[in-house]
């Protein structure tokens, strides 16, 4: 018998206010896999991530983590297993970078609530992996938007989750840091974790993700390898655009938008 999917969403329906955001969305993420979640603004990508980490309990449908319903797991167990990097984090106080990264250790702390040697080591590693260890003592309020986002990604890495959920983690980042963040995600996944990444950068998503899922009309329109999903017909159906799909020398699809459909 093969291992159950790391994350399995079946028939997930979510209504926010009067709007039916998700209707019967279904998606599996296997252990050791990066899945890219694409779709137009307001398609429900962030909502799907919130469902996947238990922040939002769907009105209908099942969310399973490693074959067990997420709702049956304790809060702490869930927090150890799943990490979320939100689109944006607002910092009201001058926490230092290392303090922010150490917050990722919260679900691993003992009853006294103080970080130990292992926690400091995990934070140090996470910062080094993203190249922000030199910023450790700096206040997050003094950083640029991109550096701040790297600190939040480092917090999620320090959490050492089995499932990493990233909501447009690279939106504020330059190309070098985009590749750096996604490279770290790839390393984490190679070590057995899984990742679900929301992105608007189709080129980077096509290259980084093992599979791409297109979210449209509250459900998963298509899921599969980038070359099978990033097609003119599916891009028209999901994003409402006419696009040319070119090929990079190594075969990855490159989407060039042409006009509104």
């Amino acid at each position: 018998m093969s291992a159950p999917p790391r994350l399995s969403l079946t028939g997930v329906a979510v209504k926010l206010g009067a709007r039916q955001v998700l209707r019967g969305a279904a998606l599996d993420v296997a252990p050791g896999e990066i899945v890219g979640l694409l779709g137009r603004n307001g398609a429900g990508k962030s909502t799907l991530l919130r469902v996947a980490c238990g922040l939002l309990v769907p009105d209908a449908g099942i969310v399973q983590l490693d074959g067990r319903p997420l709702v049956e797991r304790s809060r702490r167990e869930r927090a150890r297993a799943v990490a979320l990097v939100p689109q944006e984090t607002h910092f009201p106080f001058p926490f230092s970078v290392v303090e922010v990264v150490l917050m990722g250790r919260t679900p691993h702390l003992g009853w006294l609530g103080f970080e130990g040697r292992r926690d400091f080591a995990a934070a140090q590693t996470a910062m080094a992996q993203l190249g922000i260890d030199a910023l450790a003592a700096r206040s997050v309020l003094s950083l640029s938007g991109g550096e701040r986002q790297l600190a939040v990604v480092a917090r999620a890495l320090a959490q050492q989750p089995r499932l990493l959920l990233l909501d447009e983690p690279t939106a504020f980042l330059d190309l070098r840091h985009r590749l750096q963040v996604l490279g770290r995600v790839r390393e984490l996944v190679a070590a057995g974790a899984s990742a679900l990444v929301v992105s608007h950068d189709l080129a980077v998503a096509a290259r980084t993700c093992d599979r791409i899922a297109l979210l449209a009309d509250g459900g998963i329109l298509a899921v599969g390898p980038a070359s099978a999903v990033l097609t003119p017909a599916l891009l028209r159906a999901s994003f409402g655009i006419e696009a040319d799909v070119l090929r990079a020398p190594d075969g990855y699809p490159i989407v060039v938008p042409r006009a509104l459909a």
């Binding site: 919130r50 980490c53 922040l55 809060r75 702490r76 869930r78 927090a79 150890r80 799943v82 990490a83 979320l84 939100p86 984090t89 607002h90 910092f91 009201p92 106080f93 926490f95 303090e99 922010v100 917050m103 990722g104 919260t106 679900p107 702390l109 609530g113 959490q159």
Partner: peptide, 20 residues
């Protein structure tokens, strides 16, 4: 006290890191 640190970064961040 630790929950206050996480709450300061937002309720969803706190919830996601295991705070009730």
């Amino acid at each position: 006290a630790r929950a206050l640190d996480l709450l300061a970064l937002g309720e969803e961040t706190a919830e996601q890191l295991g705070v009730a």
